[in-house]
Design a protein around this nucleic acid. Structure first.
Lengths: 300, 300
DNA sequence: CGATTGATTGAAATAGATCAAGATGCGTGG
DNA sequence: CCACGCATCTTGATCTATTTCAATCAATCG
């Protein structure tokens, strides 16, 4: 499948929503370590992602409604804080981060966008996107035209429900991250993040196999937790020495899930599986089982 | 208008959603300074609140759909973390706080619920509410029965849009608070909070009248900002000495809005006014102007 | 009036930041 | 294939913003 099958021809530099009228807020696009801007790599869509057969079938892999498939290189801004978009995005296979930059240059990562997640909605709903979204790895995404004035709720209830649900999830996660930065120690924060990622990645729970492979640098972890990369480093060392985790390159093994959960007040229920949204007898397969499943990311 | 016009008779102690089946998580209900539990005060609804004539007309002041009006005393839990609810709430006139408690006993306030806001949705959508909600002042609220399996989206599109919108708003605010606790100094955080509350309260902008009257103790401010009450005190003093604010009891005057905005990276656009949701020619008054307006809290 | 809540200030302790310097590893161009 | 540049990780030595502990004072309330 060729990348960029839409009318829009990507150039280079930060991606700007096609048809975007408002001016990009340059003050907001300061990067601390700006990557050289090279022509966008049109990487082909990788092997089937975990979510195939769910949301993708219904909305993403079709050309209906002007959905376009795009590929982004690493460290590319897909949404820029302060701008306005006319598309929401579905992330097929990459990792992205929602983030803000303050005037001092410090960055706060609000959340990571994992494969199978929708993102970019606020950039459509607000006149100015409240945060930027950057790719952490290469990512292929689908851009879905979205116009709230267009009666999406009536025209496309399945999409509306998905967006609603993903926003509820996002709020829950942000709340948890907020209590982390507000009230947890560095040790607790790092523990909590690892557990969260472990659960969200749904890493096959077979036996004690608690290893996750994550594309995050210590700096990214630090920016997500409101810490310094140096301190994240020391904290990881402490966790290693305390025999709670093992680290091998970019892959981390959770040695003592129980202890980590306890010390960091980790309670996975905030990560979805909201038992109220399951397709039931009372709600026949009007929207197709696959779309319904997409409303419960990270499985039940 | 009599308080509690529904079938449910409130008793005392933390409010529990009628029909609630799941067990209340007692570990989560630890209060640091528990208020004595007295019989609930049925304060009559106070003078017309700011939002009258908007959302209230459509949904709240009617008995349709089993909406019940309830009054809560100060420092009462309306939603308890870990429990499950079957109602969402509309806050008529009080202040509330969404919060979490960690095992060490520290509390993080995620956000304040101001008059005119909806709250309690996640407690309906998730099997276990991700956070508690407590009244800061006396508050009269409307409880709106809510069941997601009930096709709310089709049956009640106006309510669905309102909930969707309020969730989007909440996420934006949480994101801003997260970057506060993560990357802003105490000085910046306090400044930012004051500006946010000022804008959200929509305190009549007439001339330089930038005074807001807020029912928050320094401890509440501290818990919202991830700080200590002691340090909030010192920070307020610094802001006073720097001639940025004036404090007189519980009322605070913003002396230099500009300076405060700059130093704290305050950019009010995250507080809504999403120009995409306005009723337009393309979207006739199908849902009534008043309900449409309720989707844009804090005005345009 | 006594009791409790909230504000205020001081002094000491500390978690985490900042600054600095290597070490390691990797991709790219020569 | 090597050498260079750059990103990332690592560790040490300070430094400091904020916490913690403690005490006092004012205001409110039953």
């Amino acid at each position: 499948m060729a990348a960029s099958d839409g009318a829009w021809e990507p150039g280079h530099g930060p991606f700007v929503d096609p048809g975007l009228a408002s001016v990009v807020d340059m003050d907001q696009s300061i990067r601390r370590r700006a990557h050289p801007v090279r022509p966008m790599e049109h990487a082909c869509a990788p092997a089937a992602a975990a979510h195939e057969g769910t949301f993708a079938d219904e909305w993403i892999n079709s050309r209906r409604r002007g959905v376009r498939r795009l590929s982004f290189a690493k460290a590319r801004d897909v949404v820029i804080s302060g701008s306005h978009n006319r598309c929401i995005y579905f992330n097929h296979d990459g990792w992205l981060a929602r983030y803000k930059i303050l005037h001092k240059g410090s960055r706060q990562i609000l959340d990571f966008v994992l494969p199978g997640q929708v993102f970019g909605l606020p950039a459509c709903l607000f006149p100015r996107a409240p945060y930027s979204i950057i790719t952490i790895t290469e990512a292929s995404v689908s851009a879905i035209p979205f116009d709230m004035t267009d009666n999406v709720f009536d025209r496309d209830p399945a999409l509306a429900k998905t967006l609603f649900w993903s926003t509820v999830q996002e709020a829950a996660i942000l709340g948890e991250h907020l209590t982390g930065t507000g009230r947890r120690s560095a040790y607790e924060r790092v523990s909590h993040l690892l557990l969260e990622l472990f659960v969200r990645l749904n890493t096959s729970h077979r036996s004690g196999e608690m290893t996750l492979s994550i594309p995050l640098t210590q700096e990214l972890i630090a920016d997500a937790l409101g810490l310094t990369a140096v301190h994240v480093n020391r904290t990881l060392r402490a966790l290693r020495q305390d025999k709670l985790i093992k680290v091998d390159g970019r892959s981390i093994t959770i040695v003592d899930f129980e202890a980590l959960s306890r010390l960091s007040d980790f309670e996975k229920s905030y990560l979805g599986q909201a038992g109220r949204f399951q397709p039931r007898a009372t709600e026949p397969a009007a929207l197709g089982e696959s779309a319904a499943r997409a409303m419960e990311p990270w499985g039940a």
